[in-house]
Design a protein around this nucleic acid. Structure first.
Lengths: 344, 344
DNA sequence: CTGTTAGCGCTTTCAG
DNA sequence: CTGAAAGCGCTAACAG
């Protein structure tokens, strides 16, 4: 292995000078500079960051504990993280926890052993993870992506879910819809539901409990929801689904019941999964700024790492989402009244 | 920061003993063992691997340079890599090169600086990457996934493309098809094309040049290919597409031309992308064993790292693929002859 | 602007 | 079975 000492010897300078050349701290004369450069070139020297970290206390490594890499969402965030970490001169240590809190904990410990300078975390909240983060936070800067600890000890990157829901529902309102259903999970505290309520309230419309159907956030649940809604005496003309899986289930049910989307009912999803653009019809949905979230996470972390005040209070960055209008929504005036003829 | 020295002091033993306890090298008496364990526990000590690497020459880090994380393929491989690296006690340093050779090179250099013990690489072949790998190989074990260097200096993990193509075409043959088209790229040396040829030859069938259409490996190209094939005086009754994007384009074109899949023409793809299971009809396709490939890559690397003969010749692991039969293929006997009635 | 010199935290002989 | 001590490769004062 070629070391800084070898470089120094070959360049005819001292190790200190080589170190100054590498780190950029302190002055190095032009003559030395040139000799060192050519020695490095000739020897193929690559500085050993692990050795450097012993003195500097930082490794230039960022840790990323991700909930599930096979999810295109987190994969895109990971990609963005990799890119921005690189741009800031950091390497990225990645661990896919596969939604297993135990693996997350193990990963965090291993990352500490490897001396990561900071941590970015996205797994779902769990008691043990929460505790581990709280234990680690005092000595390790952490930013959570869409993850909240109690108490809040990490920086945080989220997207504006409530605003996204509002824009989805407002889109439907602008199309002339008035009976708009919400299909989501039982968590009525979610930003998606709150946005739905808020948009309706803004338009002076009441929330009809009949139009709010709760279930799992998956396709089957969306399918069932549409059937339930069709059975209503006064079915909705539009549906806001809490995620794309649900929306896709709704569309599938509509197909199977001979209900046209968006001809007879408009559907908006949330997330903009890959499938959304390829469904029939293509799904109008709300897209999260995944790449921007990755970038924000890295920048939050790097600024804390390099900034003067590593111990400033935890920050939260809320990024705007974007309504992607595709083919599953249409004007209410064009909606055929077939539904009321008692389909099901 | 709590160090091994702190642990030693608190446990009333020497640093050497603590080190032996941690690494598992050398004997440690039960008494010492217990005292050290409780000291570590009480202090929350986490060994500093960077410091250890200074002596041991390995960091316990594996590097992974991936072509494009946003591709579900590589994401799944990355996930598998993370999992198996963890199981073998390694951390994973990840860099998404976004198909940019320049970024790959930078990533490799950075990983060397961080002292990764080995490298797993998947980016597309390029002159510069090839050179960089060849330069690095003598001092750093490397395994390529589906990536070949010239000369071959790395271990290699691939899937049996030719066998996959053969099984796809044999599936079609078993369904009674005889006029089977190949739609792929111009690379006739590809395993997919060779498998197509081989399966036909095995069945004693000639390769009709008219049925081989080349183009890009994307949707638009598949779309165009189907139109060209329909224009033939004697169109095929089945098509083997070199990848799913092409197959999906073919199916889309069929829809638009009123040709039923698989009623009038059967289609097989390759890759089993997410969309494949959700197309209409769901696509019969060949799936690569992505998780197994990730596992094989890690195991190849780890065995070289920990095995006696780090300098044994480069190895190649070829994993079997799997034909996933879905709805886009059907028996030829049930194929309506509509095609020959001169559609379009 | 540059050389010298302590360590950083840990592993590894080498005695005992 | 265990302590002492010599580094690993590099950085960071500190003189000069």
């Amino acid at each position: 292995m070629v070391t800084a000492y070898d470089v120094a010897k070959r360049a005819g300078v001292s190790m200190g000078t080589v170190s100054r050349y590498i780190t950029g701290n302190g002055y190095v004369g032009d003559a030395s500079r040139a000799k060192i450069a050519s020695a490095i070139e000739a020897l193929g020297y690559i500085p050993n960051r692990a050795a450097a970290s012993l003195t500097t206390k930082n490794t230039g490594l960022l840790g990323f504990v991700v909930s599930d890499l096979r999810n295109p969402f987190t994969a895109e965030i990971a990609s963005s993280l990799s890119q921005h970490a690189r741009m800031h001169g950091y390497g990225l240590v990645l661990s896919d926890s596969m939604n297993d809190p135990g693996i997350s904990l193990e990963a965090i410990e291993r990352m500490r052993a490897h001396g990561v300078d900071g941590l970015i975390v996205t797994p779902p909240e769990s008691r043990s993870l929460n505790d581990a983060l709280i234990a680690a936070a005092p000595t390790l800067p952490i930013v959570g992506i869409g993850l909240r600890t109690t108490p809040q000890v990490t920086d945080l990157v989220t997207s504006d879910t409530r605003a996204g829901a509002i824009s989805a529902v407002e889109h439907l309102l602008e199309l002339g819809h008035r009976r708009i259903s919400y299909v989501g999970s039982s968590s009525m505290a979610s930003g998606r539901y709150r946005g739905y309520e808020a948009a309706l309230a803004l338009a002076g419309l009441p929330t009809d409990p009949e139009l709010v159907v709760v279930g799992e956030l998956n396709r089957a649940s969306g399918f069932a929801a549409l059937e339930a809604l069709l059975a209503l005496s006064d079915p909705p003309t539009a549906i806001f689904a809490a995620n794309d899986a649900v929306a896709l289930g709704i569309i599938q049910a509509a197909h199977e019941h001979g209900v046209s989307v968006p001809g007879q009912i408009s559907v908006v999803g949330y997330d903009d999964v890959d499938l959304a653009a390829h469904s029939v019809p293509p799904l109008t949905t709300v897209a999260q700024p995944l790449a921007a979230m990755g970038q924000a996470a890295v920048e939050l972390l790097v600024s804390r790492l390099q900034g003067a005040d590593r111990h400033r209070a935890s920050e939260e960055v809320v990024l705007p989402v974007r309504l992607v209008i595709r083919g599953s929504t249409a004007s209410h005036t064009q909606t055929s009244p077939l539904l009321r003829k008692g389909i099901r």
